[in-house]
Amino acid sequence: MGNSADIISDVGWVEVTKPNLQFISIVKKNQLKFARGFAIAHNHSMKASQDTFSGYQVPESVKSLLMQAVDNWENTAIADEYMNQALAEAEAYPDILVAAYRYFYYKGNNPMALQMAEKILATVKRAENLPDDWEKLKPILTIRRQEPQIRRYLNAYAATGFILAKMGEVQQAKAVTEKIQEIDPESEFGASIVLDILTR
């Protein structure tokens, strides 16, 4: 992506291309700036405004750290420091995990992006008391998939499939995308696109 990025939104995520099984996610609709503000402007002059993270349910000190990560985007070492500080202070907050997932994804740090997506899954699973067994989980996700917490779970689960594909873990990526497709035949979460590419 070089120094610019299209940003994953909370809904209608993904259009996928396949150069050597390296998957690049692009916003399909409802574009949002990364973490409602994390994006690299094409003119390299992105700055965070005071209301960039106004909707985030995190302490003000954490919002300040996120803004510093935005403002230092082009200096990855410094931006990483601010993001890691934000995580250290507020990892229990779902919004910070989403922000961190997007941050690491667009920094090309796939292992960390995967870790954040998995933490989102664990957070929602715990909050909603979701079962481990897929056959029990599947009808719950299907019935409740329009609920914000369940949508967050599905987006995070789909994200693990995209990242695994980028990392060359094709069989694991297929297993994830096949499950998502079972409850998302219209591919709102983009899994069928990835699965089609993986099975060609």
Rank of each mutant, 00 (worst) to 15 (best):
S4P: 03
S4I: 04
A5I: 00
A5V: 00
D6E: 00
D10K: 15
V11T: 09
V11N: 10
V14G: 01
E15L: 00
V16C: 09
P19G: 06
Q22K: 01
Q22A: 03
F23L: 11
F23A: 01
I24V: 12
S25N: 04
K29H: 05
K29C: 05
K33T: 14
K33W: 12
R36A: 04
A39R: 05
I40S: 00
H42K: 05
S45H: 12
M46I: 03
K47C: 10
K47P: 08
A48G: 06
F53D: 03
S54A: 07
S54Q: 06
Y56N: 00
L66Y: 06
M67Y: 08
V70E: 14
N75P: 07
A77M: 14
Y82W: 12
A90I: 08
V98Y: 11
V98I: 15
Y105S: 01
Y106C: 05
G108S: 05
N109Y: 13
L114S: 01
Q115M: 13
K119P: 01
I120L: 15
L121F: 11
T123S: 09
E128C: 13
E128K: 08
K136Y: 13
R152D: 12
Y153Q: 06
L164P: 00
G168T: 02
E169T: 06
Q171G: 03
V176N: 05
E182K: 15
D184K: 10
D184N: 09
E188S: 11
E188I: 07
E188G: 10
D196E: 14
I197P: 00
T199G: 02
R200M: 12
